[in-house]
């Protein structure tokens, strides 16, 4: 167990294992995404109230769910980086931010597109949407803060603190539809109690959520590999790797 954690701190090992995982996870993810999107777009029945516009659910919900979970991953990596000064945790934190920002952007844009035929408006400053916009700014803030420092150790520390402070926003996003009057519908999938979504719509949605989690993992590993290579640029193992 402890040797595994020691290995996690080793850049060449992490670079190699990330590459091995990507070799099978990436094609599997792409296949699952194509299958889930086709299923949701073409094979499920329309919603009795929203009609066909609800089909946006198959990208909007997975993007939003994984954007939120991704923030926890980033904050956790930030905490590990702060507490144990583990450089690979810092690499993971930095790699999370652009992926999370992209997923939050997808959730916001697809939500706006869904909002037009459903609510009659592209945008409304309601609690769920505004807190998601804050999430996007938090992700962008971490990216900007990292670039603002020349001293990368100080940058990592500042980003870790920002990530941890930003976690306050996550429960607010989750509970916003319950705490405030909102145009946004409440959650259709519940772990406790019955879900209000028909199984014919639920299964492709579950497949898409799993696919987006896998996609997040792939993008995280891809970004981490680039960052490891950049940080280890002067080492012998990188010299061998690039064939110089």
């Amino acid at each position: 167990m402890w040797s595994f954690f020691h290995k996690l701190g080793s850049p060449p090992w992490l670079y190699g294992i990330a590459g091995s995982i990507l070799r099978w996870l990436l094609p599997l993810t792409l296949l699952a995404l194509i299958a889930g999107a086709s299923w949701g777009l073409l094979f499920t029945p329309p919603d009795f109230r929203q009609g066909n516009s609800y089909r946006i659910i198959y990208i909007h919900v997975p993007a939003a769910v994984v954007a939120l979970a991704g923030y926890y991953v980033m904050a956790l990596a930030g905490a590990v980086s702060l507490i144990w000064k583990m450089k690979m945790a810092d690499v993971a934190m930095k790699a999370c931010a652009p992926v999370g920002a992209a997923l939050t952007f997808i959730a916001l844009v697809t939500g706006a597109i869904w909002g037009k035929p459903t609510w009659g408006t592209w945008w409304v400053w309601d609690a769920r949407i505004t807190s998601m916009l804050i999430l996007l700014f938090l992700y962008l803030g971490v990216i900007a803060l990292y670039e603002a420092y020349d001293n990368k150790a100080a940058a990592a520390k500042a980003c870790a603190v920002l990530s941890l402070v930003g976690t306050v926003n996550i429960p607010i996003i989750y509970k916003s539809v319950d705490w405030w009057y909102s145009l946004h519908q409440p959650a259709s999938i519940k772990f406790t109690g019955g879900s209000t979504i028909d199984p014919s719509m639920l299964y492709p949605l579950m497949l898409m959520i799993a696919s987006f989690y896998a996609l997040f993992t792939c993008c995280l590993l891809l970004n981490m590999r680039v960052e490891i290579l950049r940080r280890e640029a002067r080492t012998n193992w990188v010299r061998k790797l690039v064939g110089a």
């Binding site: 329309p46 066909n52 990208i59 844009v109 697809t110 597109i113």
Partner: peptide
């Protein structure tokens, strides 16, 4: 998609581009 096609397909195309 009974009038919702432009919205649904636009959302999927934008998502595909970002992914």
């Amino acid at each position: 998609m009974e009038g919702h096609g432009p919205f649904v397909w636009a959302a999927y195309v934008i998502t595909l581009a970002v992914l």
